[in-house]
Write a protein that binds this DNA or RNA. Structure first.
Lengths: 151, 151
DNA sequence: TGAAATTGATTATCATGCTAATTATATTGA
DNA sequence: TCAATATAATTAGCATGATAATCAATTTCA
């Protein structure tokens, strides 16, 4: 996350960056992108929090659901598809399991591994969350009224 | 942060979003922005962590340093300029104080408030961190070789 | 003017990210 | 073949984000 509310003016960036040979235009573009993305991520996180959920749990359900030709993934495959450390995957799966949104089965081939699949309840939950998720993203990019700054 | 490594194809987005009336193009743009920003924030965080620092501490130093015509800010003014909760500001200031990078003085006008200023050490630290910071941002936007995917 | 409300800052506690270390199973190769 | 190495997953413990509750000082206004 990028927490600076008021981005520096081009002039200010020059004052900092100019002496290091960085391009102020480039820096301004990157800072703006980070700030905008942070605001969007904030909204998305707030949306999931309001549903007693989290973006990461949602993404776990998504990667299982979207996998072509398969209904389950190993924990390690889920970890491969998400840019989050393994222990966080473990904990997130434990929570999803506790809530009955996924099911685990051992694998025959490798006794260490687990196959994770969505339960009907997990599918339902995912389906229930998707419309709001897309609505937030959609309205963020092309706002009905003024976006940004909610404080 | 947005943790999905492989963004969904346009087709896949249509499969999810189309039924909810969202524009797949818009969604794809937003997901791409979030992913790119997340990767950049990761690099920046790694940079500061390698220096035993953090992006937030850096931003605190920046907002004090860049304030025109003043050499100190109240804690609450710092909080106003950063999109982070007050308790996090308190803790971050405590750490910066412990490291001797900022100094605190009470205010005459309001005995609750604190005026925060950079120490020479804090100024030096900020100056030492800036070049690397801009270099990362600069090279992320226009990469010398291939960017993205470090795992 | 003094009780009520507000404000600046902090503490307590929780959630969620991380790395390092551990456990159990599989694989490799001298 | 069996010791060494690698891999899947977990546990332990830390850092840093959040909210709710608290304390002290200030401001408001009946």
């Amino acid at each position: 996350m990028f927490f600076l509310k008021e981005l520096p003016t081009r002039q200010m960036i020059d004052g900092y960056a100019g002496q290091y040979g960085a391009n102020a235009e480039t820096i301004a573009t990157a800072l703006d992108m980070m700030r905008r993305a942070s605001l969007l991520v904030r909204r998305i996180d707030a949306y999931f929090a309001a549903q007693g959920f989290s973006q990461l749990r949602f993404l776990v359900l998504i990667v299982i659901d979207r996998e072509p030709k398969r209904t389950s993934l190993r924990a390690s495959e889920i970890a491969d598809r998400l840019d989050v450390s393994r222990p966080v995957i473990t904990r997130t799966l434990q929570n999803l399991l506790k809530d009955g949104l996924i099911a685990e089965r051992g694998t025959d081939a490798d006794k260490r591994a687990k196959r994770i699949s969505l339960t009907p309840s997990g599918s339902d939950r995912l389906g229930a969350l998707l419309p709001g998720y897309f609505r937030i993203i959609d309205s963020f990019i092309k706002p009905p009224q003024a976006p940004e700054n909610q404080n």
